[in-house]
Design a protein around this nucleic acid. Structure first.
Lengths: 338, 338
DNA sequence: GTCTGGCACTCGCGTGCGAAGAGTGCCAGG
DNA sequence: CCTGGCACTCTTCGCACGCGAGTGCCAGAC
């Protein structure tokens, strides 16, 4: 439906607008990109593109700027993902290699993404859903008070206090610890409930209450902590957004504070491959003037969590997508190693 | 040196300016505060206040605005701390009472402070320095790999992996766990090093390497984690800052991202009582146009960490101080209970 | 058919000017 | 020491104007 040249015109408009942040006119286009045609021809093409809704003019007699639909077409058909250069890749790897624990990995990733893309970075902590139990530990803090510690293969540690209905002996504790681990160690979280179901039956009547309590706390942890946490960074980059500040930046900051919103946002993104949500494609209203580029990452082939960046719709899509993809890849490697 | 009335004039100027965000002139002052004197008199007083550096005019023939020095005098001598009303106090208590763990307490506190003051809230996690060890746990993950878990009386949990130089038997593990706890449980962090110093000597030669490794990891945790973490919230309130946005907001966002800067900031504040740092009194340049109100909080009489808010120098000091003090008080209570 | 050059037209933006208004400083008198 | 009055200084706002960028359209060339 759109001729090849018109697509090139659109591509040129997007590129120029992203670079200059100013509406781009027909003359400037022909000068900066040698399209081999005159401004007049480009004008006709632009009129056609505007009819189709890919570009718009802020006011009569100004240049054109891409619409959300225009960016969408650009991302889908006109732009590739710009790969990172070798030095950049080395820098990423070096930076992430210095991490000492999971928190540190996530913190470094956020920093890195924010720096590379000069936008707001969002990194979700590796999910518990897909991961497996490495170890479950039980410690007795007081005669009727236990602490349950859950360690996952992604290096995450969760702990919970358990108030027992009755005192629980050291013997029973060791017994429960051993049985629990032999059943669930190395297993998937989703499999745990059915694996421990009948565990209370193996214990004396006196202890069953406590055992059930421990088990339900464990299951609760698995479920509750699927409400993932996440870390954000690079909010200072929001100041580069535009000149019409307060109106634009405010809802974005609000959205970033609402972790629920962000988690939903990442959750809605496709599970495999990179997802780009442009402007109004974002369900959350406050982010209607931003684009979100996200991708899953994980230690094996499977994604255990997502990361991405939030920036103005007017962003360098190829570069951003390249950075996001590269970072996701290296974080996956780091997680696999540890 | 300054007559009573002049102080009243300064107080009126601060109050009006905080309310209206606009330079305040002599006429408006006499109308809104019945000072019992004419505008002309007030003008003379204002000239005197300006000579002393307490107020300034943005340009000739505009009203006056307080300088940092003016705010300082206001805070020190003219304004009290505005206590929270009973309903507000109840709301604070209710909101914090719902907390389930330490992370939750901190998260709720940040939210609460941000809402109450309509500014950016900063809450430091309770420090390890002043707190005591509740329990130390050791788990064996693999023949030559241990996990060390440290639980503090403030409910904080830290874990570390330990790679052993040689396999470490279950027996030795239980032994070490027991000895370690009998020595350090209930003790202050600062006392731990001297308490465990001679522990390796109690073990077989084969195990000593591992024991030393565990101990050094433990000590490392105590020291390293004194680099406190903190949580911030309410950044969206920055948009209410002023009309001269990007320039003001940018360095503040940058400062907020640098946890090191914030920690230093809180660290510099006085250890007891509330500290108010106004404008240029803040060592960090990016915060030169903001004021920081901070106070220590803790479970007992002793402060284990600090919390506070960052806002424009033009803030409602009495109200902000009241909110900060009240929140700190209730957080302390919550921590003491758990 | 498609592209091109030319031309008239539309607007937004920066500039300059004048009036209005707010606020000050100073002075003489109570 | 306070007060009323007066002259002065600036900022802000509205308005008219001209410039320039950019468009749309049309007639003609390939």
């Amino acid at each position: 439906m759109l001729s090849e040249r018109r697509l090139q015109v659109l591509r040129a408009i997007v590129q120029d607008y992203v670079g200059t942040e100013e509406p781009v006119g027909s003359k400037a286009l022909t000068e900066r990109h040698n399209l081999g045609v005159s401004p007049a021809t480009v004008r006709n093409d632009m009129a056609a593109l505007e009819d189709e809704g890919f570009i718009a003019q802020p006011h009569t007699s100004a240049g054109r700027i891409p619409t959300d639909k225009g960016y969408r077409l650009f991302v889908d058909r006109l732009a590739g993902v710009k790969p990172m250069t070798a030095p950049e890749r080395r820098a990423i790897q070096n930076f992430l290699d210095g991490s000492v624990d999971l928190d540190d990995v996530v913190a470094r990733t956020v920093r890195l993404l924010a720096q590379l893309t000069r936008q707001v970075a969002v990194v979700q902590y590796p999910s518990l859903t897909r991961s497996t139990v490495r170890h479950v530990e039980l410690l007795s803090l007081a005669p009727a008070r236990l602490m349950l510690v859950l360690i996952t293969d992604t290096g995450r540690v969760e702990q919970r206090l358990v108030d027992c209905p009755a005192p629980f002996g050291e013997q029973s504790l060791a017994d429960l610890r051993a049985r629990l681990n032999s059943r669930v160690a190395g297993r998937r979280f989703t499999d745990v409930p059915s694996l421990v179901e009948d565990l209370p039956e193996a214990f004396e009547a006196d202890d069953r209450g406590t055992v059930s309590m421990v088990l339900s706390t464990l299951l609760e942890t698995l479920v509750e902590e699927n409400e993932e946490r996440l870390m954000i960074g690079g909010t200072a980059n929001l100041t580069r957004f535009g000149h019409d500040f307060p109106l634009t930046i405010r809802p974005v900051l609000e959205a970033l504070e609402e972790q629920v919103v962000l988690l939903k946002l990442l959750g809605e993104a496709g599970d495999s491959g990179m997802t780009v949500r442009i402007g109004h494609e974002n369900a959350y209203e406050g982010l209607n003037s931003t684009s979100v580029v996200s991708v899953g990452y994980g230690s094996g082939g499977e994604a255990v969590a997502k990361l991405g960046v939030v920036g103005p719709t007017r962003m360098d899509y190829p570069g951003t997508m390249g950075a996001v993809r590269a970072v996701a890849r290296y974080v996956g490697q780091i997680l696999a190693e540890s």
